[in-house]
């Protein structure tokens, strides 16, 4: 077993665990959007940043992917973390104004408005990549993937054409943390196969 500290409280977990898993096991609250137990962590949303301190030295690490180690000191609510979170939520609110899930999460962490103008009022997707990871890792089809790069990145099927590779299993819809896949799956399938909502699954 590995012993280390979260917010000055000693915790003990199995080796190979991530800091996020350990923290959640002990009831410490850390927000995440791109993390799901079913798929490999990717460290993309950066909401789960925690501060790793060693004497005077410290750095922020993504807890969803940072492996636990004996004796490390982890803090989950420092000024640096709050600064990162605040800006991430403000940017997400402007990027995905249509997502109630993001609005609720941001509000929970004290961010109710954003100084940035909304870009596309209908946008919900923040490109966490959970949909593409579940399609690749769990369903084994890779019907969708992240396409293009940087500010042009989007989720889509090859060559932006409808694809029969998609079996309309709905995993991507159910794993999507912002509700964005609901409106996208029909573009992946040729025709609306079934009405899919997270509740129906």
């Amino acid at each position: 077993m590995i012993k280390f500290n979260i917010n000055d409280t000693e915790v003990e977990v199995e080796p190979g665990c991530t800091v996020l898993e350990a923290a959640r096991q002990y009831g410490f609250d850390i927000p995440t959007l791109c993390h799901h137990e079913a798929v490999a962590p990717s460290g993309a949303c950066r909401l789960c940043m925690v501060e790793l301190r060693e004497g005077d030295w410290s750095k922020l690490v993504a807890s969803c992917i940072y492996p636990v180690a004996e004796g490390i000191n982890i803090y989950t609510e420092t000024e640096r973390i709050q600064n990162v979170r605040k800006w991430l939520f403000e940017m997400l609110l402007a990027k995905c104004p249509a997502s109630t899930e993001i609005k609720e999460m941001a509000s929970k962490y004290g961010v109710d408005s954003t100084r940035f103008p909304a870009e596309n009022p209908d946008e919900e997707c923040m490109l966490c990549g959970l949909c593409t990871r579940v399609c690749e890792e769990i369903v084994g089809l890779s019907a969708i993937s992240l396409v293009d790069r940087g500010v042009y990145k989007k989720v889509g099927s090859p060559f932006a054409q409808p694809t029969d590779v998609c079996v309309a299993c709905g995993c991507c819809v159910s794993i999507c943390p912002t509700g964005a896949m609901r409106s996208r799956i029909d573009a992946v399938r040729r025709t609306p196969a079934v009405t899919l909502t997270p509740l129906a699954l």
């Binding site: 993309a44 990162v84 940017m91 490109l127 293009d148 790069r149 940087g150």
Partner: peptide, 17 residues
Amino acid sequence: EEESCGKCIPCRLGLTK
């Protein structure tokens, strides 16, 4: 901004901001 891979939010959205 042009060269960001777009994987993480601070880089993809933050540099533009």
